[in-house]
Write a protein that binds this DNA or RNA. Structure first.
Ligand code: MN
Ligand code: MN
Ligand code: ZN
Ligand code: ZN
Lengths: 136, 136
DNA sequence: ATAATAGTTGTAATCATTATAGATTTGCAA
DNA sequence: TTGCAAATCTATAATGATTACAACTATTAT
């Protein structure tokens, strides 16, 4: 189930999204860095090997990838969006102490909820806050 | 169960938090405006009747109220925090079309999740995205 | 009443994100 | 292959929410 770089490339081709050098680098980065990186982390790391890369391109690429459904944007306070190559049904835990974001398995579709008749649900998110084992 | 202004005032006194005119106004506003307002909405509305009110005070007050556990901060993309006087177990639905945030009832504690052994969970949040009945 | 503490205010600074315009690259047709 | 339009990228400026700061005011304790 793990999103493989080669599969993702095919997916982009299918959707007629150009596979530019920059886009492939960002996509590859996300498959290799599953710690929910910020734009700044992605940019800083990639800039080491691609000195001409622009932060705007990272933003643009991420928008394209999110719109294509290949990447998920995560907003857990902080006013800084993080990105996740794993778009499957899972939850996030943010440690108040170290700031790390952990994945956990959960079936959101199983969550019973009242008051959403006639609502069209496109996306479901769960996140917890607290202290991680490493920080306790 | 609905958070009543008078009860909240007592709660603040208990916690030795000064009940300044500005803080009471913000608190009262939240009890009367349960549409998850932004700082800007709170400030603009209160500024009508309190022309000396500063936006910084609104920010400061909300931080105090959130830390005291009387108010919940909600971050659903948008890079603009919204505030909720309802701190009980409930979920949020954001309409992509009109931007409204709706409450829905759900029992998050009942959600089974793997991979969080030894994690100290302090807070649980769920939010859905989609289209609301009004916009369909 | 006086001094110390807490809260408020207006302004400036910060920081993530978006807009813009010119430069570069790509896809495709001649 | 060559030429050109469309797409993408880059650098920089603008935006907008939030925070930092310093002076001012209100509250509390002595
Ligand atoms: Mn994840
Ligand atoms: Mn709510
Ligand atoms: Zn931690
Ligand atoms: Zn709507």
């Amino acid at each position: 189930m793990k999103a493989l770089f080669e599969d993702l490339k095919k997916e982009l081709k299918l959707r007629k999204i150009q596979l530019s050098h920059q886009r492939l680098k960002v996509l590859e980065y996300l498959t290799q860095n599953r710690s929910h990186p910020t734009v700044d982390q992605i940019f800083t790391d990639l800039h080491q090997e691609m000195s001409t890369l622009s932060k705007t391109t990272v933003y643009n690429t991420l928008r394209v990838l999110v719109e294509a459904g290949l990447v998920r944007a995560i907003n857990i306070e902080d006013h800084e969006t993080r990105y996740d190559i794993n778009v499957e049904n899972h939850g996030h835990f943010k440690c108040e102490s170290c700031g790390r974001i952990y994945d956990f398995h959960t079936d959101l579709d199983a969550l019973a909820c009242d008051g959403l008749n006639n609502f069209l649900i496109k996306d479901r998110n769960v996140y917890f806050n607290g202290i991680c084992p490493r920080c306790r």
